[in-house]
Design a protein around this nucleic acid. Sequence first.
RNA 1: GGGCCGAUAGCUCAGUCGGUAGAGCAAGUGGCUUUUAACCACUGGGUCGCAGGUUCGAGUCCUGCUCGGCUCACCA
Length: 627
Amino acid sequence: MTENNQTPFIEDNDQTRARREHLERIQQLTGNAYPNKFRRTNLTTSAEGEDTITSVVAQFKHHEPPRAEGQRPTPEQLEAANAALKAFGDVRVSGRLAVPPRVMGKAAFVHLSDGRERLQIYVRRDDVQQLNHRGRTLDGWELFSLLDHGDFIGVEGFLFVTKTGELSVHVREFEFLAKALLPMPDKMHGISDPEIRQRQRYADLIAGSLKIDRDEEGGAGQAHELTTREVFERRSKIIREMRAFLDERGYIEVETPMLTPIASGAAARPFKTHHNALDIDLYARIAPELYLKRLVVGGFERVYELNRNFRNEGISTRHNPEFTMLEFYCAYMDVNGMMDLCEEMIKRVVNTVCGGLQVQFNGRSIDFNNFKRLTMKQAIVSCLTIENSENPLTAEMLNDPAVVYGLEKRLLELEGEPYPLDIEQEGGSVNDQIRGRLNLINFNELAKTTISSPQLPDPEEIGRKIEFLFERIVEGYFIGRLEQPVFITDFPKPVSPLSKASPDDPSVAERFELYIAGMECANGFSELNDPVEQYERFREQGQARERGDEEAMQMDTDYVRALAYGMPPAAGIGIGIDRIVMLLTNRRSIRDVILFPHMRPAAPKVEEAAANETAESANEQAGGQGA
RNA sequence: GGGCCGAUAGCUCAGUCGGUAGAGCAAGUGGCUUUUAACCACUGGGUCGCAGGUUCGAGUCCUGCUCGGCUCACCA
């Protein structure tokens, strides 16, 4: 038996010991427990060009006689089905043992899985005792007895339907293909610990493919919960559909640098690294935006990139340090055209992937038929005037600096008041109470207040305050208003340094963000293409940075220079793919739609830690010798 | 970073008031040639996340720590 310290990645317990012993005996019996290939037949139509369990099930499952619950098919039905199946001849398929072998004396049933579908095989001792196994004759029944849940085998035999009516392969020959030295998860429960599911996605995927689901609750037409595999298959489909949508419209897909000397194009803290040969610091990109617009300058009228961005910020159910973004740019289009295009694209993707425009997410129904559009000021107002019809706040009133200042002051006062607030109110959380109090503000009074601020209202400051009010009131207390798809438009110019100002109102940018289920899913605008103004905006950002705003955008003089060659009017957008996938797979955490999400390293076990330490000191010694 | 919750056999989970560590599945042995969450009998399997403390005695109570989940804050 293998010493445990030679395989530190395998725990030593009764399960793994049994599997190792089986492996040794298989090795002796077959001469090679890890063969290089298995040839499958090609009776079915499949993309793979050979028979998979999925393709065999897809093509032959319909031969199973219709049977009522708990009823067995009649002998006549079986005879007809088996006669039909026999005509197809022998099939060779392979897969993982999806269950522990059910051995009944001198015959056995096992299910094989190819990761998607499962197919039952039937093995009789008398059929395989003289087994031709890769050129040598051996006792196939003995080999079969050494199989464990999770092993890979290839089988050859004829298709038939069992007495209970299940499509199966009656095995004549089989080959051992690979061993599972680690025990499989519980066949009924799978893996429930989210930590293991995310750290060891392979185990999660295996567990999903091996799990026996009795689909009892499928009666009311309820869409079943997607398996992990189905989530990622759907993710792939979403991305494929988006690419197709853009390709059809003449967009060119490009790849721009992931490692950049300046992390710009968004407001976020970057990851920093160092290039040794050039001896310069580089930053993992936080957005491809400025490179893509250089390409618009260069004559790519329609261009897109679908790839990863990296932001050195918090991790949450909606944030992963690396996330996938689709950005595309279209020359001669403005922000309104881009909203139309975005809406059209998302509708098509949703419809194709989910088979309709009503999608269940987190217990709510999202209606993708209807994308609303609200200016940022309208959105704020819509939260505050519901119960206050005699004293309505209007979007126009938010043009008055006194109202903006007064509202901010009142909001901060309300938030500063200790719990419980002094108004008489039965129950309700602090947030409920603040919501209630916000509705009771006398907006007409606010309009009459004088600004106590020493200096005259600075338009820049007002813009930031409006965004602050939006974030606090709409995104905070009234996030439910952003549940159905809604474009929030007319962002304040000071917080939108890459956007063109609105021709109607120089204080706002032609910019939008798309909110769905309270999540920010997309951000787009009419691209600022005046190099002089862009230079000034970057300088203002630089000043904000000096004032301590770590996230103010970095100046990129080469980008400004590119604009100086002339960029046509254009609109661009960034769409957060992970969040779209969350919406369309009904997953509440971004970690459930990213195969290998970032997590804090698990605490090493005692022996592992010791092993790592010796490895590290060995490395250090080697490094010291080299230097 | 704050709050709440969780970590017990390979997996899923019980474990009462502080008094010898439990079940199902999985594993091992035997039986069974159309089963299907196969079945029947027997057997083995534990650093109770880690480190301290209280106690005659800790899976259980206390403190600290690690990892995770939810949530708030942060984050265009």
